[in-house]
Design a binder for these strands. Structure first.
Lengths: 235, 235
DNA sequence: AATCGTCGGCGCGCTAGCGTACACAACGCG
DNA sequence: CGCGTTGTGTACGCTAGCGCGCCGACGATT
């Protein structure tokens, strides 16, 4: 590799680590493909691995019961899945579903635990990431409570676009309804509104972001705040 | 002190620590009184202290804007305030308001930072507490979205009662409305319903829990799940 | 070219909760 | 004792979103 960028840089939490830490991590991790729809964690089950997405992304979904479920967090290249392990807990808090196929670095729980005491930079970065996720969860409580479907849909599309790194997303209204915890036809109405305003275009399971700045405008402020928080704490 | 219980045991996170860790903590902390309505943290401001409530309790409130605010977490004898410090971040994520007057152990940010590396039991316990709070935040996103006011009110009263250690709570409908992020008269209706069912009694700013088991029944399952999670992870 | 499953548009009646506003009762203070 | 303040009950019209269900259109398969 002649580039100054190492393969590990593909995940932001692993980028620019001290060489010793990076090598130690890469020596004990493996690269795995994740397929769309794959379940990585079931709530309360034991977490055996942590995942650091490269070009995949994962939805974390809170389940109240069969009919009441909704996405509360998303992990892509900018983050990780398996926070519990950093906190010394071996159970998964929520359902983790691969929402964007791709690959990820995967590391065994025991290896990660062994690694962290000797990787102060990584360890610190992961703890700060946990802070970001917690803060975003806190504001999501308010966002899901106060903001309407159209704003939340816009926010969700932006977050997904960031992680998918593409203007075109493979998503049905049905799926979006599950993510936002609303009715399918509620999504249809919101999507029509966004399309009419020229912000997105869609057709049978494919949504294209046409006007990203406009979409940011249409989204609730929570999107911008989430970005600002991430940059403030992790960059 | 002839009792086998030490003063530190008044906060569950500090109870039954190894003597060395307990002494180190108690040597650098102070006991402070907290008065009702006091603001301990403002969002994004620097956190100078962590608090371990003894018989006080503190609401953590997410603020979207002047009109849209709602409580997302509560810290009493069973927990702490100032999680950011454990994660190596010095800013506060939310507004922290004293909701039940009483006292708390208070420790300076720098002292806590210095203490933790030599206090493995406490450190581990605090990390596991963070996991509990995160999981509760995640399910709160869903709870606030799907459950109705009456169920959420019942849950909130139970959580408050646990921390206040009293059947009688000093609360106005106005205040409850702010906590749950709803209209004042929405609380009045829910309170009437609960009183009619003989679960609570209230009068001008004082609410009394009459039938706790019944109230648990009336609350959404989130209350029981929160308790179960706490016990599973921290006991 | 016919078929069939998936996806999206739409309608209908309904409910929870909103914003606003007013009235009354209890309490605290001078 | 009278007064203002605070807390609670209630009413009215309104909106977002629900549950349900139907239909048409698209696209893949054969």
């Amino acid at each position: 590799m002649t580039s100054i960028f190492h393969a590990a840089d593909a995940n932001h939490l692993l980028a620019n680590l001290p060489v010793a830490e990076r090598d130690a991590f890469m020596a004990t991790c493996e690269t795995v493909p994740l397929t769309f729809g794959e379940t990585l964690f079931q709530p309360t089950e034991t977490v055996t691995h942590a995942y650091f997405p490269i070009d995949s992304f994962i939805s974390q979904i809170a389940i109240l019961n069969a009919d009441n479920r909704l996405e509360v967090a998303m992990a892509g290249r900018e983050g990780m899945l398996g926070i519990s392990l950093i906190l010394g807990v071996e159970e998964a808090p929520m359902l983790a579903l691969v929402q964007g196929a791709g690959s990820a670095f995967r590391i065994k729980a025991a290896n990660l635990r062994r690694l962290l005491p000797d990787s102060p930079v990584l360890h610190q970065r992961l703890k700060r990431y946990i802070y970001v996720v917690m803060s975003q969860l806190a504001s999501s409580v308010a966002c899901n409570h106060f903001h309407r479907i159209e704003e939340r849909l816009a926010r969700w599309l932006l977050m997904t676009q960031d992680r998918a790194n593409s203007d075109s997303l493979q998503l049905t209204h049905e799926f979006l309804a599950m993510m936002l915890g609303v009715r399918r036809s509620g999504i249809t109405l919101a999507a029509i509104a966004l399309q009419t305003r020229g912000l997105i275009r869609y057709h049978r399971g494919e949504i294209t972001v046409v006007d990203r700045p406009g979409l940011i405008e249409a989204a609730c402020g929570c999107y911008a705040e989430d970005c600002a928080l991430y940059n403030r704490i992790l960059l």
